[in-house]
């Protein structure tokens, strides 16, 4: 260590440090993967708002025209009708056209209108329901636009992760990890259970069986697979995502061999474990206190 700095030295060091710190912060805030992380979270938030808003509009409108809300499976299409057409008295063959409804369905709606069990609705209340329905439509288009952004941006920022995991799942994993740089240094076993932290820590505490998948459950290959294959598929998928994230972060170019290796491996899992395993005899008594595997010393993690 050199001689102690004087007050004057310290003030000049301080100003330099503030500048350097601000530069580091600025640099970190302009990373495209952090914008993706915000976008995927905004997408998930918007999904939530959309759901509650559309459900509320449907419930409210259902006081007035319950048959229609019963008939329409798709809340967005229903909200579009409420917003475009208004009260049930205004429904006609003309304004029901061009909505992708079958002629039979149009007939059914008009039939329901004539003998509806719904109550009267004042202009004021109808206006409020229509405004709510319109809000749901706006949220829906906002959702689509965010989704488009995530899809296209993921291809640029993390082409290999996108290829292997899909854009939305890849983005969610990135969000959980805290950016592409963090995802690129996570072990595959961690990636496999990202999003299942609660189940994991419960397993560690009680010795129950650990989770097989977190966010990865949303992947088609995992949730479409029969139950006994899911753990193996999730593990393989996580392995390839870990490799893909590293290639994306350190090399930055697409590499088709990752996906083809994944497909090959999935093929062999499905072939080899076609049949369900024989049922194990039921375990009696409480599970052992410690985990099923001896715990090893923790290593560094960030």
């Amino acid at each position: 260590m050199t001689a102690e700095p004087t007050e004057e030295d310290l003030q000049s060091i301080r100003l330099e440090s503030i500048q350097a710190a601000e530069e580091a912060i600025r640099e970190a805030s302009s990373r495209p993967d952090l914008h993706l992380v915000q976008a995927i979270q905004a997408l998930d938030d918007t999904d939530k708002y959309l759901n509650v808003t559309a459900t509320r509009a449907s419930e409210w409108y259902g006081l007035h025209f319950p048959e229609l809300t019963q008939m329409m499976q798709d809340n967005i299409a229903l909200c579009k009708m409420i917003s475009d057409i208004g009260g049930r008295g205004s429904f006609s063959k003309e304004n029901l056209g061009g909505r992708g409804l079958t002629d039979k369905k149009v007939e059914a709606v008009l039939e329901a209108k004539s003998r509806s069990k719904g109550g009267e609705i004042s202009d004021g209340d109808l206006g409020r329901v229509r405004a709510l329905a319109k809000l749901a439509l706006e949220l829906s288009s906002q959702r689509d636009s965010l989704n488009g952004y995530v899809e296209s941006q993921m291809k640029k920022v993390a082409p290999n992760v996108t290829e292997v995991a899909g854009a939305t799942i890849g983005a969610r994993l990135m969000a959980k990890a805290g950016g592409l740089d963090r995802l690129a240094v996570l072990p595959a076993s961690t990636i496999q259970i990202l999003g299942a932290e609660k189940a994991l820590f419960r397993a560690l505490r009680t010795g129950a069986r650990p989770p097989k998948h977190g966010i990865l459950f949303q992947h088609n290959e995992v949730h479409m697979a029969p139950k006994w294959q899911r753990g193996k598929i999730a593990r393989t998928l996580a392995n390839k995502i870990a490799i893909a994230a590293r290639v994306d972060y350190y090399r930055g170019s697409a590499d088709a061999s990752i996906k083809s290796a994944l497909d090959k491996r999935l093929e062999s899992i499905k072939e080899r474990y076609k049949d369900p395993p024989p049922r194990k005899p039921e375990r009696r008594g409480p599970p052992p206190r410690e985990g099923r595997f001896p715990r090893r010393e923790k290593t560094r993690r960030r």
Binding site: Q11, R14, S17, A21, E22, I25, S29
Partner: peptide, 21 residues
């Protein structure tokens, strides 16, 4: 960086006895 931003802005910039890294 996310939390360091507030530290630099609200503490280091306002206080001469603080040097941020």
């Amino acid at each position: 960086p996310r939390v360091a931003r507030e530290f630099v802005e609200k503490v280091a910039r306002e206080r001469k006895n603080v040097i941020p890294y």
